[in-house]
């Protein structure tokens, strides 16, 4: 009997970037364009690229609209992107803003923390629908980290 166990090989990150942005609405378009350009290395379809742009845009918009709403234009958003050798692209969007008391509630479709602001309440629903996996970690007064994972058709 062989003592060597067949072990599942862990996926390895083969490309990565980190970007720090001021939490301003004018950076929303810049952030999603960078995300799309990074994911383009995996030769995605037009629709997959549109999914990534939209999901990243939602996460960054949440930082601008909600996380730093009381910061008078100050605040930073850190975006980390990784491509894994199993064909996944992962984006981590992190802020050090106000955080969320009740993450589950905020994830509900049509819920908005800004009822005055003409928000649709669909941000997290869009992220969930357009990605394969959505992970949200948040602590009140500390900040929020959103992790978006999408598997793309091609391989590295």
């Amino acid at each position: 009997m062989s003592a060597v166990k067949e072990r599942k090989k862990a996926a390895k990150a083969v490309e990565s970037f980190t970007l720090t942005l001021a939490a301003k609405s004018s950076n929303e378009g810049f952030a999603r364009t960078i995300a799309a350009a990074f994911a383009a290395r995996l030769d995605p379809t037009v629709e997959e690229l549109a999914d990534i742009k939209t999901a990243v845009s939602e996460a960054v918009t949440n930082c601008v609209v909600h996380a730093y709403k009381n910061s008078r234009g100050k605040g930073e958003i850190r975006i980390k992107g990784q491509i894994f050798d199993d064909g996944r692209v992962v984006f981590e969007i992190k802020d050090k803003g106000c955080g969320m008391e009740d993450v589950e509630k905020c994830l509900q479709p049509l819920y908005t923390g800004d009822p005055e602001g003409e928000r649709s309440g669909m941000g997290f629903t869009v992220m969930e629908s357009f990605c394969d996996k959505l992970k949200v970690r948040s602590k009140p007064e500390k900040g929020t980290t959103v992790v978006l994972t999408k598997r793309l058709g091609g391989n590295v």
Partner: peptide, 13 residues
Amino acid sequence: HFCDSSGLGLLMG
């Protein structure tokens, strides 16, 4: 050529 949930908010508004 791009629309996210903020765009939905604009349409609803």
